[in-house]
Design a binder for these strands. Structure first.
Length: 424
DNA sequence: TCTGGGGTCCTAGGACCC
DNA sequence: TCTGGGGTCCTAGGACCC
């Protein structure tokens, strides 16, 4: 019998901010998306104030002011480092682990693994990192997710740990859960199920597999089986090779000029190609896209993407920037107020496996890109690299495309100059 | 003033080939 | 009267997730 545990960090980004700033304890805290646009993490206190997930910041200003909600720009350097600490503790405890996202991991646990043991693990993570987690146990990924959700929703009763299979009334829990609360069932699938008269998780569990297959395809059938304890989603210890890398940002304020778009795009290409180099990959295809603000209903809208397959795979910033700029020029139309541009590098191949073609240039003896990457890694932070290309614009030329990040916490754990100081 | 960014998987349809 | 069928690759778009 398979046995899995899903460990999920509570309000992860907010919890990270709290670890190094104890004054935030018991206070409402929220963390914003890139560009300080939306609220993407909320402490329990902030949730209690009725601040919804994904809410635009400007809609919540009044609540924030009234209750003194502490607001932070996202600090992915800090969150990434804290995540690695949590994952390394988990990895030591179990034979196999799949890091599913920055704040979640599936653990392969022994057959006799109990809620009691999960509580010990939970306490250890909290003590060693300061991050509270919830743990759900089940025989499939979907059931572990489901248990985790219950543990989190009923923390007072569960103490943050739950195993559906050892509960006295599992059907009662499934009845109290809508299909849309299940992992993998979004708005559309939930609606389709409602159309079939299936509303609760229990009704879904007992539904006719053939009917589900017919109306929801293989995805529906897989969910149904997982819900019934038949594992369809394997634990993936080795992350599969990346399919693509994307980089894009909304502008702080609308941009109309091609030159500014080119500058913003050059920055996105720089980030995307650095990522591709870091993974030891080459891109064989590049896509550039451009769009106006779809929320501005009364403004003229324009949205277009264009892609080409490269003559040969590359991860050179200079080469990719040239191609990207050319593509942008092809789709750019004057007279629009643009909200966003971005680049996707896809069909990635391994640097080592790639066979150079007959007419390829031999590799440069010194790879300038990689040297720049190394310097930026050691000396800068991701939002402010110390070395950039001229096409990316210069410091001080404050342009419309610059991203907002006004309430950034320090890089407590990754920059010597920003280490927290203990008061004696 | 103000609405994130980065992924994955699946399906359908067209082009092309034998 | 009558106009293959099956496989593969590519692309676009939908749906979902964190």
């Amino acid at each position: 019998m398979n046995r899995l545990a899903l460990v999920d960090c509570n309000n992860f980004f907010c919890s990270c901010e709290r670890v190094f700033n104890p004054a935030l304890k018991d206070k409402p805290v929220v963390v914003l998306s890139n560009n300080d646009g939306c609220i993407i993490s909320r402490s329990e206190e902030a949730k209690a104030l009725g601040i919804p997930m994904g809410a635009p910041l400007h809609e919540q200003q009044e609540v924030i002011r009234k209750h003194g909600v502490q607001v932070f720009s996202s600090n992915y350097t800090l969150y990434g480092d804290m995540s690695a600490r949590v994952m390394s503790i988990l990895r030591e405890e179990v034979p196999a682990i799949e890091v599913y996202s920055i704040d979640e991991a599936f653990l392969q646990v022994p057959e006799g693994f109990t809620e009691e043991q999960a509580r010990v693990l939970r306490a250890k993570v909290l003590q060693w990192t300061g991050i509270p987690v919830c743990i759900g146990i089940g025989s499939t990924k979907l059931l572990a997710k489901l248990s985790n959700r219950h543990a989190k929703k009923n923390k007072d009763l569960t103490g943050g740990v739950f195993d559906l299979a050892s509960y006295w009334d599992p059907d009662g829990i499934l009845t109290g859960m809508e299909t849309g609360d299940l992992w993998g069932v979004g708005k559309n699938l939930a609606q389709r199920l409602r159309g079939m008269g299936v509303k609760t998780a229990l009704e879904f569990k007992q539904a006719d597999p053939a009917a589900i297959r017919k109306s929801m395809g293989v995805i529906g059938e897989r969910l149904l089986r997982e819900l019934n304890g038949i594992s369809c989603l394997e634990l993936e210890e080795m992350p599969p090779d990346r399919k693509g890398v994307m980089a894009s940002r909304s502008f702080g304020s609308p941009v109309e000029l091609l030159e500014e778009l080119e500058e913003a795009l050059a920055n996105h290409v720089a980030r995307a190609s650095e990522k591709v180099r870091r993974f030891g990959l080459l891109a064989t295809r590049i896509e550039v896209f451009l769009q106006t603000n779809r929320f501005m209903r009364d403004e003229p809208q324009y949205s277009r993407g264009i892609a080409i397959t490269l003559d040969r795979p590359t991860h050179s910033s200079a080469e990719l920037m040239t191609v990207a700029r050319d593509l942008l020029q092809q789709i750019y139309r004057p007279g629009y107020r643009y909200k966003k541009t971005g680049v996707q590098l896809v069909n990635l191949v391994s640097e080592d496996e790639y066979q150079p073609g007959l007419f390829d240039q031999p590799k440069a003896r010194i790879d300038v890109d990689k040297i720049v990457d190394e310097i930026n890694r050691r000396m800068g932070d991701p939002k402010n690299p110390v070395i950039t290309r001229a096409s990316q614009g210069t410091e001080g030329s404050v342009k419309g495309w610059k991203m907002r990040s006004e309430r950034h916490s320090p890089h407590y754990t990754t920059n010597w100059k920003q280490l927290p100081v203990a008061q004696v």
